[in-house]
Structures are given as C-alpha cells and as structure tokens.
Design a binder for these strands. Structure first.
Lengths: 348, 348
DNA sequence: TAACTGAACTTAATCGATTTAGTCGTGTAA
DNA sequence: TTACACGACTAAATCGATTAAGTTCAGTTA
C-alpha cells in the first residue's frame, strides 16, 4: 500500500522545509527557480494532490454544497440535483446529497451533520413532516451560524434565505387554460391538501383559469388527497370514485402518478382520451412521456431550477462579508408540453 | 452572526485548558466530577458539536462513503442510492454522491477529488465510456492508496475490489422462461451491444432459457441497440422495424424504456398484449408499474443491492489492517413481478 | 569595515480536535 | 523529613496544509 504524499514527506525526501514545498508548488517568488522546478517535478512525478480535509480546516471553507431533499426516487428531484451538480461543477464546488425521506428528525440530523464543517451552505426542499410541524429551528440555527440557505420547490415563509420556486400557480393555470381553449368546460382537479404549498398553489391556478373564462368552480370537482408523493391504495380508490361519480370532460392533476391512474380509470370506463375527457398533469417526467396515451404536461424545468438554486447559493458564499444581506425569490417558468391526452385548441 | 463554539472558546470562557474541555466531554476519569459537570452543562447549553473536518483530519477517517454513478435520472440507480443511504446511516457513515454522466474524464476527476481526503472508500458503477476505453488507472490508484472500492451493476474485471451484481443472466432467464411456460415460442429480445456487461449477460440468459426448452435461437430475433440508458430516435426506429418485420409472440427487453416503446408499437399494429404478443422487461420501475398494460418485469431489488454494497464497503473499512485482503462478489437475486403484459403459465 | 539589503529559506502559528507526556500540590508512608 | 504516589490539570505534539514572521548569508554601499 502506497502512502499518500504530503508536503511533509516531499520536504523530507528533498531535504527542504515544508513551507518551501508549499510555496514552490504555489509558485511563490520567494523560492528560487531551481528549487521550485525540482519540487514541482517531484510532485508531478508522484502525483501529489493536497489533502482536501486539511485545506478545508485551514481555509474554513469546504467548497461543498449540502443538498437535502425529501426523496431521491422522484424524477423531479433528480433533475434538480442534476442542475445543481452542473452549476456547482462549473464553479468548482462539490455537492453532498442527503435524503430526509420526508422525515423531520432525519432532516434535522442531516443538517446538523453537514453543518459541522462539511459544507459551506445548503440547498433544500423541506420535508412534508417539517411543513406539518412548522418547526424550522434547524434552518434558523445554520443561518445564524452564517451558512447561507437556498430553499426550492417546497419552501416555507419567515426564513432568512433565498428561494427558487416553480411558478406553480401560473403553471397550473396554463394547463387548465389549455384544456378550456380546447373545448373543455367541466374540468376537475386532483390535488393535495393545502398544507403542501405546491398543491395549494396549483389549486389556485386551476381556480384562476376557470375564473378567467367565467366558469363557475364546483367543490365536487376538486379532489384533495393527502399524499402528493406517491399513489397509495386509498388515493387510488378516491381517484376512481372521483372520476366515476363526476361528470367531467377534463381532468388536471398535480402530479404524474395521479394522472396515470386517472388515465387508467377513464379508459376503464370506456371513455376516450382526449375525445371524451382531456387529461393534463403537472410535472413532465418519464411517465407523461411514455404513457399511452402520452400526457400533456406542465414541465417544471427541474434542471434549470437546480442551476438557479446553486447559482444563488454560490453567489452568497462568494459575496464579501461586509456586503448587506438581501434575500430574493426566483421563479422558474413552466412550459406546456402538448401530447396525446389533450385536443387541439379551438381557433376562432 | 453567532460564531460556532469550539473547544478553545469553551476553554477560554470557563478558564480551563483546551484538553480539559476535550477530556471532560469525553468523560475522562482524569477530570474531576465537578469540572466535568460544569463543562458538559456549558457545552449542552450552547449546543456544542465538534467540527467534523477537524475530526477527520485528526483521525484520518472521514466516515464518509463516496458513491459515483453514471447518472441519477434513472430509477434503478436511485433505488441503489437509497439502499446505500439506509445502510450507511445505520452504521454511522455519510454518503457523498457524484455523477459521472457516463463521461470518463468526469469519473476520473470525481474520484480524484473525493480521494483527497473526503471519503474513506468508494462504491461505484463505471461509466459507459470507461468500459469502452478499458482504462481503469483511477480505480487502481485509489485502491493502492488503501481505499477500498465496491463496484456494482456495471463492473469490470481485474480490479482488486468487492463486487455486487444482479444475477442478470438468471434474471433474464426467469423472464423468458415465464413467457415460454405461458405458451410463447417465437420470442424476440431487445438488448444492447455486448460491451455493456448487463446487456451481454441478459442476452445469455435469454439464450439459456430458449435452450432449456429446445427452442432454436434465431439471430433475426435479437436486436442489439447501442444505447441502453435512453431511448433515442434511432433506437425507436429500429424497435419499430424489429417488431413489424418479425413474426413474434413474445418480446423480452433489457430495460423498461425499450419495453414501453415496444408496447406502443405492438398496440399500433393492432395486436393485443398479451394475447397476441407477450412482453416482459428487465428492471421493475415506475414505467412497468404504471404503463397500460402494466408490464411483467424482472425486479432488480436495487435497494438491496445498495445495502449490500455499503455493507461490504463498511466491512472492509472496519476490518483491522493486518487482516488478509480478500475480495468477493455478491449476487442479488432477481424476482419476477407478474403483471398484465403476460399470460398465465400453462399447467400440465 | 560596519551597516544594510535582499534573496532564499526556515520557524512557528493557525485551523479544531485528540492524546501523550509533563506539572503541581497534597497526602501518606518510610 | 524526605520520597513517592496520586488526583487534577496543563502543555505540547499531531493530523496536513498555509503564511506571517523570523533567520542566514552573500553582496552592496557609505
């Protein structure tokens, strides 16, 4: 087993002091040309790389971003991470990803862990449990210690940090408006309970779209499920009931899973998509693209969101200390990806 | 901004030496009961947490596992990560995830980066480019430095490390055998070129199953695409051609995407799944579960794979230095998840 | 020739923790 | 009274790097 080179071992080998080696490698003019060349040649030959841990300790800077997300088995988060990765890599930062599994305690634990020297700042999407508990002491703590935080997607108010949000309301409005323009009038929505911010906002967008066209909203056409992240049996049942008992010509859902199940139920009733019922969902992922029929979807541009979040964090990290703190919220635009589950817009 | 507590600041505040504080917090009998209590109370009150970076430097141990994967936007890798995370968390290790994006240079860069003190060992699935290049110097280098490596899923030979593999051959055989038992005789396979090990092995399993039942293999019924990770237009075309021009009563694919597209093509030809053509794919993910018809799939148990990989790595990390090095390969069993795309097995 | 300059190094402090090797005063035994 | 043991600490080395503050010696200048 070959032991890693250190400044010390190089110094010993070449008969100079540690600081001479350090300075030579950093091209200090204090060191003579001759010595510098000799040391650099040796370092190169044996592939010397400084120890990151020692550098972090010395510089009190890790050049690492901590990302905390509720779950990774979720296409949207995955694309966000990809965006964070790309931006970070370009700006010479590393990324550490931790999963909270939608568990409050784990979120706190992960943050504490990473906050003890492992990262310079955080990008996070709070877990469902945290939103329910409304306990944000862990966020406030790291912020007080001077670590900047950027929240994305699932954000909460009253925290001193930057935010990156999907324009959920506008996105939902786009999707529903498209259905209305293509002739739908009796549109239902499958959404989540209001405490999940994205669910609430998308519901608002839905209502906005109806309002724009003078369509009266109807509570019976709004289904609020309590789990937005997966599709359990209870949710399946409620979707079946919702679609079977309502007289609808369009359904908007806040995620792909709800849409895929709705699609199945609709087909099972012998109805045609989009001729009898149109279907639009939020989140453009694998399922929307490959389902049969493929689903018209509101694309969230997760990658862009990740890039933006990382850019905002790095910006804060590299801002001179004396500069005034200012927090902003960035919105990432959505776009509608038209596929087989909706009809053409009626032109006048 | 509240500055983080350090041993030094506590020592100063309480008028004792740094080492007294350290010892008191670690319950050393060298320190009097009285002093110990006082220090611990203070530390607790102000929520002292030791700095991980300093600990890592001192202990030459980071308690962190580096995970390098080709891409994260892939359900299988995602489940593996989840498994790694769970196992690591239980054994008090952290996980750093880096993406290689199937790019050789990035894989090398990431490894070098993490190897410089950030992690104690690696879990990785090599990128496609690395397999093509057959250049494994970066792996050998970290191994020589004494960092254990565990490879999973996409492994290469001739490296001193543990491996965790899906039993790809057996899995494919299971899937194809199921089709044969349900009455199929003219079974095609959509797979990858042989340099991707998983593609090659799954093709072997397919051939094995045919052989078991005395069915003559036919090269025309084997389609080898060059990209196994996504479904591009060229692949789509070739799948369409393959299914249209062949007379098949069953199709086995090495991933979900190929299957979903095959399903679409089959339906487009007016044929019924599974009555006219059965469909089975490798990898049990979101698409198999939610497609219409839902797909019978060979489940890879990614989470279990991740757990096993992490367990093997941690085992190596915690093994006493003098113990002899031994490398082993673990196989994770697959299981067949029967859904709507296959017929019942014919009982005799 | 004494004082000064500057090139080329080395020493030592520092980051935050752990740990081995002292130190110091008190109490006990010879 | 002296030596020794022991309890309760402190000092200092260490991990691997950086860097401000010396040091050393040859060469220049008044």
């Amino acid at each position: 087993m070959k032991r890693k080179l250190t400044l010390k071992s190089i110094a010993k080998e070449l008969g100079v002091s540690i600081s001479t080696v350090s300075k030579a490698l950093r091209d200090s003019p204090e060191i003579s040309e001759e010595t510098r060349e000799k040391i650099k040649a040796y370092a190169k030959l044996y592939n010397y790389k400084p120890n990151n841990i020692a550098l972090s300790l010395k510089n009190r800077k890790t050049n690492t971003i901590g990302v905390i997300i509720p779950q990774i088995v979720h296409h949207f988060f995955t694309t966000v991470i990809q965006g964070i990765e790309h931006e970070a890599r370009e700006k010479n930062y590393n990324v550490i990803i931790c999963l909270s599994n939608n568990d409050f305690d784990k979120e706190v634990l992960n943050m504490e862990l990473l906050a003890n020297g492992s990262t310079d700042g955080f990008i996070l999407s709070v877990s469902k449990e945290t939103m329910l508990k409304e306990d944000y002491h862990h966020l406030n703590e790291v912020i007080e210690q001077g670590m900047p935080v950027v929240m994305f997607d699932r954000v909460v108010d009253g925290i001193q940090c930057d935010r990156v949000l999907i324009d959920d309301k506008e996105g939902a409005k786009k999707g529903v408006t498209h259905m209305i323009r293509s002739g739908c009038r009796k549109i239902g929505i499958i959404t989540s309970e209001d405490y999940v911010s994205v669910g609430r906002l998308r519901t608002e967008g839905y209502l906005d779209a109806l309002d724009d066209f003078g369509i009266e909203p109807d509570d019976k056409r709004i289904l609020k499920l309590d789990n937005i992240d997966d599709l359990n049996d209870k949710s399946k049942k409620r979707i079946e009931e919702f679609i079977t008992k309502n007289d609808l010509d369009g359904v908007f859902t806040v995620n792909e899973l709800f849409a895929v199940h709705a699609s199945r139920v609709i087909s099972g009733l012998g109805k045609k998509i989009p001729d009898d019922i149109s279907l639009v969902c939020f989140t453009d992922g694998q399922l929307s693209e490959h389902a049969v029929p493929s689903l018209t979807a509101v694309s969230q541009h997760g990658e862009e969101m990740g890039r933006k979040a990382a850019a905002m964090l790095i910006d804060k990290l590299e801002r001179p200390e004396d500069e005034e703190e200012e927090y902003s919220t960035a919105y990432i635009d959505t776009s509608l990806v038209e596929r087989e589950s909706t009809k053409e817009v009626i032109k006048r």
